[in-house]
Write a protein that binds this DNA or RNA. Structure first.
Length: 413
DNA sequence: TCTGGGGTCCTAGGACCC
DNA sequence: TCTGGGGTCCTAGGACCC
């Protein structure tokens, strides 16, 4: 089997788009965002600025850093356009995020030649047609292709031919392995393991002792490059959620209820739009000191009605707060729904069945609310999201992330 | 002015059933 | 009454990714 998997990754994507749109930003350290850095240009990264970093800290590291507010619609458009370039070479494209995808070109070699040549063409086209830098890795497996594209950054191409896989991996840091974050890296370092070669040479038993059975075994397989995962064109989403950072607010109903309303509306309307519903509702409460707890419940029937979701979430938040009576301030609330089902007709049939009404009191009321929500959805479709409903309740916070960014981060259901 | 938002997967203990 | 084992689901927490 040859090196037929391509991993494509747009470089410093949001920042590159800003530099594309505004030439005066090119070659300069810039950050998209404000209160928090959503993306940093390579010029800013050289100062240690990175995504997720508080804006104040970024300014300290890089006094000349220029903040720009994002053009989120452009990110979506250009990200889609880059993926389209890949799709010109094969339909077997697995999109990982707005700016990243795998492509399996094994079926396209007879049309376009060697994968390396396809990769060169892809890079050239993205550069000339879209004006964006992109890095590509070409290898025998997804995992290896992803490592290769990381090594290729910025704006490069790395091909790993099968005979050279071990040589290629040997001296790379373990952090390049997908799934090895700060904690695992630290644990491995304590065991004297810093490179992928050292990891591959380690005894599997000691890895399992260090990291647990599954993680240890998996990591050993990855390090030895024995991990052929297929490129999956479309993957079903398994949970839908929304969260809102609050700064520091008192944990009182006048704060909690409207926030949960808003979050429930976001989550539930997304589910309804795709005719899905979910049985397990999870809330997350983060206290002022940034410690967080979760509470969840699995309901007897799937829900996608805003009102019911909001009420269940409020109950869960109250149980979480009751378990931490000394915490009087909260900094974040989140709602997620999992155990998703297709809800086709389900929500309408449920109340008609007496057993269900008995087993699940309130189901009839639930269906009525679901219908009311569908009516609101229809109005929003026609007149826009702000036309009706819970809108941007309680999110007057200056640091609130724009809705356009939230939509960008949402995964297709 | 003490940190965004949307996700996936794994683990471990307990409940419950056979 | 006590002892034994396996499977599945639920819940809470945590690591990790983009």
């Amino acid at each position: 089997m040859g090196a037929n998997i391509i991993h494509a990754d747009l470089d410093a994507f949001y920042a590159s788009v800003e530099q594309l749109l505004n030439p005066s930003l090119r070659g300069r350290p810039i950050a998209v965002g404000g209160g928090v850095v959503l993306a940093a240009s390579y010029e800013a990264k050289a100062f240690g600025v990175h995504g997720g970093m508080p804006g104040r800290q970024a300014r300290q590291l890089c006094p000349d850093l220029q903040f720009v507010s994002g053009h989120f619609d452009e990110y979506q458009r250009l990200g889609d356009a880059a993926i389209d370039v890949l799709v010109d070479f094969t339909p077997a494209v697995e999109r990982i995020s707005i700016d990243e995808a795998f492509a399996d070109v094994s079926g396209s070699v007879h049309l376009f030649g060697a994968p390396e040549d396809m990769a060169k063409t892809i890079r050239r086209r993205v550069r000339t047609e879209l004006g964006l830098p992109i890095s590509l890795g070409v290898a025998r497996t997804k995992h290896l292709a992803k490592i290769a594209s990381q090594v290729a950054k910025p704006d490069g191409l790395v091909v790993v031919d099968p005979p050279y896989e071990e040589t290629f991996l040997r001296d790379l840091p373990v952090a390049l392995i997908w799934g090895v974050g700060a904690v695992t890296q630290e644990r491995l370092a304590d065991a004297g393991i810093a490179t992928i070669g050292q990891l591959a040479a380690a005894r599997p038993q000691s890895m399992e002792r260090l990291l647990g059975r599954t993680a240890g075994g998996k990591l050993a397989a990855l390090a030895r490059n024995r991990d052929p995962r297929p490129v999956v064109t479309q993957r079903r989403v398994r949970s839908v959620g929304a969260q809102s950072a609050l700064g520091k607010k008192p944990a009182v109903t006048s704060v909690i209820r409207p926030t949960l309303r808003h979050l429930a509306d976001r989550v539930a309307s997304r589910m309804r739009a795709k005719s899905r519903a979910g049985k397990t509702v999870t809330v997350r409460v983060r206290f002022a000191d940034l410690r967080a707890v979760t509470r969840s419940i699995t309901l007897p029937a799937p829900v996608s009605a805003t009102g019911i979701l909001a009420e269940v979430a409020e109950e869960l938040v109250h149980t979480a707060l009751a378990d931490h009576p000394t915490e009087s301030n909260i900094s974040l609330l989140a709602i997620a729904v999992s155990q998703l089902d297709d809800d086709t007709a389900l929500q309408l049939e449920l109340p008609l069945r007496l057993q269900d009404e008995k087993r699940c009191p309130g189901t009839r009321k639930g269906a009525a609310r679901w219908l009311a929500d569908r009516a609101m959805d229809a109005i929003r479709d026609r007149f826009g999201k702000e036309a009706i409903g819970y809108g941007s309740v309680a999110l007057g916070d200056r640091r609130a992330i724009p809705d356009a960014f939230r939509e960008l981060a949402e995964r297709e259901l």
